[in-house]
Write a protein that binds this DNA or RNA. Structure first.
Length: 270
DNA sequence: AACGAGACCTGGCAGC
DNA sequence: TGCTGCCAGGTCTCGT
């Protein structure tokens, strides 16, 4: 599930852990995208969680000793549970706190990551070259238009490039382009400033709407079964091949761009 | 610098 | 019921 809104909702849901102290680190399977560092067991022992931040799709857990990076990959999920709650097959990593609460990472496909970033996480190799946050002021039409000037690739592929802007995954790329009424295959460099403005606005609106929808289910997020129960987003185009466009009634088309499924309305998006 | 393809993994589902 | 093939929300790495 993890696109940027889901990661942000996860971060917010973990807020009760701030101020608590780590009692134990459990690594059941260290083989994630990169190995989970074994030294975390010592490094995080008795460390107090100072705060939780987010950069792109990384959750940054800040401790006195440094910052733990958490990434959910394609299939990751973090739950906040009682420490006695029995782990299941793909529960690879636990941070157990003195209160008896545990932050538990489950990730069947293991594309996610648990990494140590030391005291300067902004300089970490996975962080330092990332583009601006999509909801920040730095991501505006002027910036986007300048970035696209040298790119022939399809606009949908371009906005999913984390060096250009972070946090626009496969679902929200299609959704944002629909809202901006831009065909996903348009060569990026062909977008006018006005189109860039529509796209910037659409990306921000799409992500904010998803955040608001997810936020409404936050109460269910920490059920003892650990199921987030995300609000089922009502998509305009994603996954709706052959169904009717909610605006004009044309059937939704699917194509592949950059090896990813892409959905659009051939009437609304030119 | 930009682009496309391949890689990493497991689970779910359609079709036979 | 079981097998096979294909698909999946991410993103880094490598070759051109």
């Amino acid at each position: 599930m993890p696109e940027l809104p889901e990661v942000e909702i996860t971060r917010r849901g973990l807020a009760p852990l701030v101020g608590q102290t780590v009692n134990e680190v459990i690594i059941r399977n260290s083989r994630m995208r990169w190995p989970i560092p074994a030294h975390l067991k010592n490094t995080l022992q008795h460390q107090q969680l100072k705060n939780l931040e987010r950069r792109a799709k990384y959750i940054l857990a800040n401790f006195e000793a440094g910052t733990l990076l958490l990434h959910l990959g394609m299939s990751g999920r973090i739950s906040l549970l009682d420490r006695n709650y029995p782990p299941e097959k793909h529960d690879h990593f636990d941070l157990v706190f003195d209160s008896g609460q545990v932050l538990r990472l489950r990730d069947p496909r293991r594309f996610g990551a648990v990494l140590w970033a030391g005291s300067r996480p902004e300089s970490h190799e996975l962080i330092v070259n990332l583009g601006p946050e999509p909801l920040s002021g730095a991501f505006d039409a002027t910036y986007l238009h300048a970035q696209l000037a040298s790119r022939n690739a399809a606009i949908k592929v371009a906005i999913m490039d984390s060096h250009l802007v972070v946090g626009v995954g496969n679902i929200y790329a299609s959704e944002s382009l629909f809202r901006a009424r831009i065909h996903p295959q348009t060569p990026a460099k062909h977008l006018s400033v006005a189109e860039c403005q529509r796209l910037v606005d659409a990306i921000k609106r799409t992500l904010l709407d998803a955040l608001a929808a997810g936020g409404s289910s936050l109460r269910d997020f920490f059920g003892t079964d650990g199921n987030p129960g995300y609000f089922q987003q009502e998509y305009f185009v994603y996954g709706r091949t052959g169904e009717l466009c909610k605006v004009c009634g044309t059937d939704i088309t699917m194509i592949r761009l950059g090896q990813r499924s892409t959905f659009y309305c051939r009437q609304c998006q030119l």
